[in-house]
């Protein structure tokens, strides 16, 4: 039997009827046509289905749609700011941090969450944060460069809005 949930997706409130056995991933793609979120392995290993749940990256293939009742989800469709790309998206484009693009939504969201927590990550921290996002094309070098570039942009942006960010707690 379907259950009613109330949830905020990409800033917009939705009242949805969901079957409990439907994953968040299936709900996003099939019910809301938010097909930017990809299904790779379906077992929580590849990260292609990454979304932000209350700001934190999670594998939407391992979350039930009913579990997000009252919670907030950001998908790749909601990462930009009114058409202005997020610094991570921008840097992925500029630095060639993608080839086929299948892993890119997950990497962009996970990278954005990383910068929120740690605006100045070193390479090891970036690689550790992205360990759950598999890319079979790039060899990761360009992706890591893109996140580093995005971090610089992110810090510049934050600096114009607010006082200099606190140094990251390693």
């Amino acid at each position: 039997m379907k259950q009613q949930i109330v949830t905020k997706i990409n800033g917009q409130q939705h009242v949805l009827q969901v079957s409990p056995r439907k994953t968040l991933l299936a709900m996003l793609r099939e019910q809301l046509q938010l097909t930017g979120t990809k299904e790779g392995c379906g077992t929580g290993d590849c990260g292609a289905c990454t979304v932000l749940l209350d700001g934190q990256p999670v594998n939407s293939c391992l979350v039930l749609g009913v579990e997000i009742d009252g919670r907030e989800v950001i998908t790749i469709e909601g990462l930009d700011n009114d058409g202005e790309l997020h610094p991570v998206q921008e840097a992925l484009v500029e630095r060639g941090g993608m080839q086929c693009g299948f892993c890119t939504p997950g990497i962009a969201l996970n990278g954005a969450a990383l910068l929120q927590d740690n605006p100045d990550p070193d390479e090891a921290q970036i690689r550790r944060a992205l360990a759950g996002n598999l890319c079979r094309c790039t060899g990761y070098v360009k992706i890591v460069e893109a996140i580093q570039e995005a971090a610089r942009k992110w810090r510049e942006k934050s600096a114009t809005r607010t006082p200099a960010p606190e140094p990251a707690d390693g």
């Binding site: 929580g44 990260g47 990454t50 749940l53 934190q56 990256p57 999670v58 594998n59 391992l62 979350v63 996970n110 969450a113 990383l114 550790r128 944060a129 360990a131 759950g132 996002n133």
Partner: peptide, 9 residues
């Protein structure tokens, strides 16, 4: 354990 995504759940 796992990845950032897994550790968040």
């Amino acid at each position: 354990v796992g990845s950032a995504q897994i550790r968040n759940r």
